[in-house]
Simulated assay, not measured.
Amino acid sequence: MTSYTPIDDDLRAARERARRLDRLTAQHRAVSVQIEEAGRLVADLEARLVEEEGDVSRLEKGGFAAFLSGLAGSRQDRLDRERAEAEAVRERLRGQRTRLQWLQSDLAALRGGLAELENARQEFDILLGHKERLLVGSDDPRGRELVEIARRLADTAADLREHEEARQAGIAAGHAIGQVLRCLGGARGASTWDLIGGGTIADMMEHGHLRRADEAAWHAQQALDVFARELADIGTHVTPAMPEVDTRWFADTFFDNIITDAIKHQRIARTGEAVAEMGRWVGETVEGLASRAAELAVRRDRLVARREEILAG
């Protein structure tokens, strides 16, 4: 049997470098999040300190604030308390600024480590590919398993890509439907006002919201059409249709009374419910796609791990 000792030694070293790269990448993400958090805390504490120092300054200068403080008790006691509160905020601010500096130093060190290992994953993949070709081209039984793994990996990667594309299309459709619901919500609010006597202004607002809802509904339908095509790619055939925005609302201006106002209000409510139902269907479908994509990602990772086990184990 062919000896693979030299390339196996290289693979072990390359795998360790790749794993170190993965660890540093994860740490880099974590520290970046911590820096964002610390930055927000510093900004909040700086604003808080300005307020606290302002309170102290007003009490020190006297005036109306000091007069009110005197009515509530000892002005000096209040001043001492405000100074203590300002100092407490100042201490917290110093602590968070120090923490932020530490985190930034950690991030710089991580970036240095990442720069040294920048090509570690590519180097490991190249060595894996080299050994894979050697095994596939030999009589080694591992070669046959590698061929099957490669086939399954290709299928899984394609399925995962198609599910992710469908999920993104669904998210876009959900956003478009949300815009329709917002317009209908505005129309419903104006319609409620119209019912209790909003008059011409309420009518104008209502009709404006409805025109925007009608336009948004066409955009949502376009997004749903794209979503349907992406779903067809993964074997799900649907023809989702947005509920129609009733253009008779605009003609109702000529017959404006409490009865027609109530009818318009009911139409808006029914349309809103139908649009919301479509939104729920999109949301549930997107969740299903995300779940399936997660399963495919697990399958892909297991295949990749098995391939690496064969080649570098």
Rank of each mutant, 00 (worst) to 15 (best):
S105I: 12
D106I: 04
L107M: 14
L107K: 14
A108I: 13
A108N: 11
A109Q: 13
R111L: 07
G112W: 00
G113C: 01
G113R: 03
L114H: 00
L114I: 08
A115H: 06
E116W: 02
L117H: 01
E118V: 13
E118L: 05
E118W: 09
E118N: 10
R121Y: 02
R121H: 07
R121W: 02
E123P: 05
F124I: 03
I126S: 04
I126M: 10
L128H: 07
G129E: 12
G129T: 01
G129N: 02
H130Y: 12
H130N: 12
K131S: 03
K131H: 05
E132Q: 12
R133Q: 11
L134W: 05
V136Y: 07
G137S: 03
G137D: 03
G137Q: 04
S138L: 01
S138M: 09
S138G: 05
D139L: 11
R142N: 09
R144D: 08
E145Q: 15
E148H: 08
I149F: 02
A150G: 12
A150T: 04
R152Y: 01
L153E: 11
D155Q: 08
T156K: 00
T156N: 00
A157V: 14
A158G: 02
D159P: 04
H163W: 09
H163G: 05
H163F: 11
H163P: 08
E165Q: 14
R167H: 06
Q168T: 10
Q168V: 15
Q168A: 15
A169D: 09
G170A: 13
G174E: 09
H175E: 12
A176E: 07
G178E: 09
R182T: 15
C183A: 14
C183H: 12
C183P: 04
L184N: 07
G186L: 03
G186H: 12
A190T: 12
T192G: 15
T192E: 11
D194P: 00
D194F: 02
I196P: 02
G197A: 02
G197Q: 06
G198L: 00
G199Q: 10
I201Q: 00
I201P: 00
I201F: 07
D203W: 14
M204R: 14
M204A: 11
M205V: 12
M205W: 04
E206D: 10
E206G: 06
H207T: 13
H207E: 09
H207D: 10
H209V: 06
H209E: 08
H209A: 12
L210Y: 10
E215Q: 11
E215C: 02
E215T: 03
E215Y: 04
W218H: 15
